[in-house]
Design a protein around this nucleic acid. Structure first.
Lengths: 240, 240
DNA sequence: GCGACAAAGATTGCATACAATGACATAGCC
DNA sequence: GGCTATGTCATTGTATGCAATCTTTGTCGC
């Protein structure tokens, strides 16, 4: 019996059954989203063939997408083994936040000096959306938004290199929060986001920098950075 | 008559005629080097087939390498057009140095706080090599070394994310210097590198940061950032 | 002579087929 | 019984062939 039996096999058809061909960009975004929303948890293996089947395209295009994802450190590529959703270690976690501090200090400084009123209003609007999500208890949305706030800062600063690096670091932060966050601490305190926007609006660069550093420190502080990861579950220990 | 006539065609053979199969990593490094050493100037088209022929491998592997190079912004990928060696605009140049300041301020701060005596000696040794290259007038080597100094700082700081970003930014800086440097100004003044190492050795973080910023400002200041690029050679102008 | 259109050529985009490598399971040996 | 060896299976690595797209050049009409 042939292996594939869950779907018809003749023509390549994506998961929704629609025959619309997806662009590589769309495939990239779908996987990126799935990782950000934790539908693909850290450590998950991303088989080329399975992904190809899921999106109705050949492995060639999946490889192209995985290459991009690996350049952003969202997935790790192990030779002859395949691609895996990144699973940052404690050491990597410290490196991520160290890098974030370095870059975000510069970003808020730039914004405090150059932000237009329109920029400020976009930041305010974003913070308001976060607040709304928090009130309605929409945690999935809140996690996405609180990360996107920092990406938005990078966008408004107008530096494509820092933006791209921040995108990668924010994605990794989402994975880190998933792995190490203590049970019931929200990712970002939106009050702190507001304080940062306040300082930017006043053009107070030193204050904005201090608020940003403090904010990042709070996020790190809310994590439970023990060496042991949830990764491999030790069967022996459980039944000992 | 078949198209290829410069070399025998039966077996894939790389440019040296040796049959040793090159790994993707090696191909990557060869292209990276060629760009850094300006044998592939900004704007050069990197045809998949030609590269494949040059290295004796198929287009598939070349594409993988080009994907990596494009993720580091060393080459730009234009859909349906191909890959080109990056040719940073004036605007991008400002962004590159803005990003470098952000990251390198953090790096020297880290080193001033945590650098071991061994780290300092490696920095000293590197600065000495730069000095030697300057004395012997080995400009090609000096350009490589003066960039590598900044990469070395990132390595010693021990943050893989900042390291990778710095690698990309230094590569871009080499292209920028090629495009916009005034005729006879060397890339980096090694005296300044020494000053940075001094401050790191003394653990004087603020001083190290100031020296680094000043150093980067000097590099930017030595450039002739006019809008016109050397990019496309204007045939009309040449024969006018 | 100048502009628009069309065909030819070259190059990238993509899918598929096969080779190579690693993981797993079974069998054999100490 | 536990450890090593070997064969099978699943998955990635690579090459190749065809389709799609862009560039160029030649031709036509104005």
């Amino acid at each position: 019996m042939p292996k594939g039996s869950s779907t018809r096999e003749k023509k390549p058809v994506n998961e929704a059954g629609s025959a619309r061909p997806l662009s590589n960009q769309e495939i990239y975004e779908r996987i990126y989203e799935a990782v950000s929303e934790r539908r693909l948890p850290p450590g998950t293996k991303l088989s080329e063939e399975k992904l190809g089947r899921a999106f109705g395209v050949s492995r060639t295009r999946i490889r192209e997408v995985l290459c991009r994802l690996s350049s952003e450190k969202i997935v790790g590529l192990i030779p002859n083994r395949g691609a895996f959703v990144a699973s940052p270690t404690v050491e990597e976690t410290h490196a991520v936040f160290e890098a974030r501090k370095a870059i975000e200090i510069a970003l808020v400084k730039i914004l405090a000096e150059r932000a237009s009123p329109k920029d400020v209003s976009r930041l305010r609007q974003h913070a308001a959306e976060e607040h709304a999500a928090r009130l309605t208890g929409d945690w999935k949305r809140l996690i996405r938004l609180s990360g996107d706030f920092h990406v938005l800062i990078a966008e408004l600063a107008g530096n494509p290199f820092l933006l791209e690096t921040m995108r990668a670091l924010v994605s990794l932060t989402r994975l880190i929060v998933f792995l190490y966050d203590s049970p019931r601490t929200p990712a970002c305190l939106d009050h702190e986001h507001e304080l940062i926007v306040d300082a930017i609006q006043r053009g107070d660069a030193p204050k904005a920098e201090r608020e940003m550093v403090e904010h990042i420190n709070h996020v790190v502080g809310s994590l439970q950075l023990k060496e042991e990861k949830v990764d491999e579950i030790d069967i022996e220990k459980i039944f000992a």
